[in-house]
Design a protein around this nucleic acid. Sequence first.
DNA 1: ATGAAAGCGCTAACAA
DNA 2: TTGTTAGCGCTTTCAT
Lengths: 336, 336
Amino acid sequence: MNPSRPTIRDVARQAGVSHQTVSRVINGSEEVLPETRAIVEAAIEELGYRPSAIARSMARGSTHTLAIISPNLTDYTFASVIEGAEVEARQHNYFVLSSSASDPQAFQGLVDELVGHRRVDGLIVINPYADDRYQHIPNNFPVVFVGARSHDENVCSISLDDEKVAYEATQHLISLGHKRIALVTGPMEEDCSQDRLEGYRHALKEAGIPFDQTLVFEGDWSASSGSDALVDFVKKGDLPTAVFAQNDRMAMGVMRAARDANLNVPDQISVIGVDDMPLSSYFDPPLTTMRQDMPLIGQEAIRKLMDIIQNKTVEQTVLKLPAQLVVRQSTFKGGD
Amino acid sequence: MNPSRPTIRDVARQAGVSHQTVSRVINGSEEVLPETRAIVEAAIEELGYRPSAIARSMARGSTHTLAIISPNLTDYTFASVIEGAEVEARQHNYFVLSSSASDPQAFQGLVDELVGHRRVDGLIVINPYADDRYQHIPNNFPVVFVGARSHDENVCSISLDDEKVAYEATQHLISLGHKRIALVTGPMEEDCSQDRLEGYRHALKEAGIPFDQTLVFEGDWSASSGSDALVDFVKKGDLPTAVFAQNDRMAMGVMRAARDANLNVPDQISVIGVDDMPLSSYFDPPLTTMRQDMPLIGQEAIRKLMDIIQNKTVEQTVLKLPAQLVVRQSTFKGGD
DNA sequence: ATGAAAGCGCTAACAA
DNA sequence: TTGTTAGCGCTTTCAT
């Protein structure tokens, strides 16, 4: 594009040394006389030389580029992971290509393009689906999964400790005296939803509250599915006194539908979510939720990936991060 | 990483042709006999050969990679632009590196790294700030600005038609009978905030309503700054009957503070925002807003960029997209 | 229609 | 400490 940028050889000529010496200088090799170095650096400065990452990749066989594949880039949860990852990657002098793949086919195409054509050194998959898309990734290729359990040996994954988070959320409700606690889940084919269901059941069991399938509604993470859930509970009669929504958006939908049904939150029905989105404290009422640190998850994912790439140690790691209960005004004592 | 993948020469050997013929086949050249092509394709298949993007970049001198620099990756507005851009770029077989740069210094560093070192083929800058960071970008480098006016010749920009959007929002309020219409702006150093102020003033003027500086509050796009705005108006006494917040988040803050001040929305005070975030219809009350299509902006940005890269035509283009009024329940007739 | 040679800009041996 | 010689895997002339 630019009228032929200077190359390592132009610099060499200008400095009166061999191109190899220039290479040594730009790579910070010790084996260069300070004065030689100075001359070369002067030449670099004068010519405005910048090494080409492509040529480097070519010679070294690695691109210093990573990729993140996410179902989408706009969901606040995903975007936060990506941002955390991006910042950490830059720290290590890596860039990251983020792409979205909504279906398995797009995912496979992306992996092929990214890994097959050797554009990237490593991969992070934000993959809430418990399908076997990881199968499409070549063996031994550096990859870290975010938000899904490991289904395989030799696969690293990082996620929220979903079971624990759900356990704690449910317990918060129980500690408030609630006994009829409804659950609004994400899509049940996602690990995350299942684990949170598990935590919910665990807390119930521990408190001696029988599990009631009619109090469980499968949503899809959207606010409208939260609304649907509450409408459904109302229709069934025998309302719950509290609802644990597996994310804040659905919690918001629950609250909205409650308002429409003339149910006061939290007086008549308590609601707790998961995420602590930036707007959660602005809901009406401000939402009690389990705060999770998504950027940290992204950061940890990159760290693990760097570790795999550098040490080629592909030992399985499963990291589960905690969340923190943030009590606001959507939960209140209840029960009979 | 992988035990040396097959190269073009391996395929050539396998197929009994020259590596050049293989090159022709993978590039879809016409000048290959169908039977030769078949043999080569069989060899490719058999060996599982995939061309190396790096080697291609090396030989062709272009990376088929674009970059997008945004203040952050999590803001819904930015993320939507990025996603729109990413999808469109994939369509053209380009990948995009998205990075965040919060301050001008980080921005400059990123540009240098991306353009000077990584040699991306083009750049999209999501740049709401009217500073001169574009100066750091080499002349004649393909770049498209999103969300900022052009301050220079030969620079392409795409954004919402901010003035018109603000004009229409204000007019909606006016048509409802409002005369005391407050404005909550984004940071005034952003083009976007200024243009929206302009549109607001324009609508006011046209309706013969005098502009009142005390009704203007400078926020920072955050919900809390929206709250601050309303608190400020309350403190000043002589409340507005309507508030135009320059984005939905601030509108949400306004509504929340109104509730806290026992002001009913929309009966006592109407509120309109801009964006139509996914959650806006779930606010209480559902927010009237100007819906903008951010993914489309991202898409258009990529299209323009592709055009610049391919045709090397760097003529200035300023594209301003419209927004659409979505009337929900936060605005109501008012006035004296 | 196909092949041979050269080169993209760098790094990695090895020599001097 | 520095220079020389080979590639990295492809595309691009230019022959054939």
